[in-house]
Design a protein around this nucleic acid. Structure first.
Lengths: 153, 153
DNA sequence: TTGCGTGCAAAGGTTTTGCATGGCA
DNA sequence: TGCCATGCAAAACCTTTGCACGCAA
């Protein structure tokens, strides 16, 4: 939550608009670099990481760490969501690696439960539910390997 | 959940007994290497990672990722918890690194909820709730940094 | 003009991989 | 004996850092 002076640079604007456009999706640092390349613009990876870090500090962007050896994901959440109690949970399929994005009151309730009963202040931003997604479960029960499985991360 | 043939090697046994002895604590790959060195035994880091991966696959050990650029932590959870329907959830304090074990019906209920409503089959063994534990929250709200803060892997 | 932001390249650290050897069953 | 596990070293990977230059204010 470092509020430091911010210049309005071209890189920051493009990055921010990209994140906003992809709102609800998950973007990695290398996605950002690729996007800039496609736009004909260019950016150094160091800048990407530094800008993303700033945006996370400012609360405009969330950072998710799904697995230790896959790159961190970023997602634009905006100022409102940050100030609101807007909570978002993530489910990660252990089989196909898919990341599912959930807004759900019942899940939010566990936040209160953990806080009230277990005195633990849940951080939904960092918490990822691991398990098996619908397609993979179907594929598993219907015999064997799903279509494009075998991946992971 | 790969059940592959397992040989009972010296390295595996020492590693497993170390993890069991440190049950409830969190251990990194380099901790393991150091432990072997102290024991007069030796092990290659590749073996450490490979064994840990196997143990995680078997459900004997859980893997926790606290921060993208700090090493992953491992913890022995045992076979019983895995084979029984006995569900155990883990809360990890992002501040002090403490790992809290929870047996709780309400948390188990989210398993059914995710399955019923979101068609996602939760794997409690892999899932870790991240957040702030009671002591750290108190320490944070009561002014500033807690006693031995600033740590965390 | 000031000093933050940028870019390049190199470093940092963790984790993975290839290949020959050793050891369990 | 057959195969898996091991160990070493090197690679791969994401991310951070140093330093000089460019650009916003």
């Amino acid at each position: 939550m470092n509020i430091r002076p911010k210049y309005k640079t071209k890189q920051r604007e493009i990055l921010l608009s990209y994140l906003q456009a992809a709102s609800g999706g998950h973007i990695t640092a290398s996605d950002v670099c690729e996007y800039f390349r496609k736009q004909g613009a260019s950016i150094g990876q160091a800048t990407v990481y530094r800008q993303l870090e700033s945006l996370v500090d400012e609360g405009l962007v969330n950072k998710y760490i799904i697995d230790s050896n896959s790159p961190a994901c970023f997602e634009y959440v905006g100022k409102d969501a940050h100030e609101e109690g807007e909570v978002c949970f993530h489910c990660k399929c252990e089989k196909c690696g898919k990341l599912i994005h959930l807004h759900c009151d019942e899940l939010e309730a566990i936040k209160d439960h953990l806080s009230g009963e277990h005195h633990f202040q849940l951080d939904p931003l960092r918490t990822v539910f691991y398990g098996i997604c619908e397609e993979c479960r179907k594929a598993l029960s219907s015999g064997d390997a799903p279509a494009g499985s075998s991946d992971q991360n």
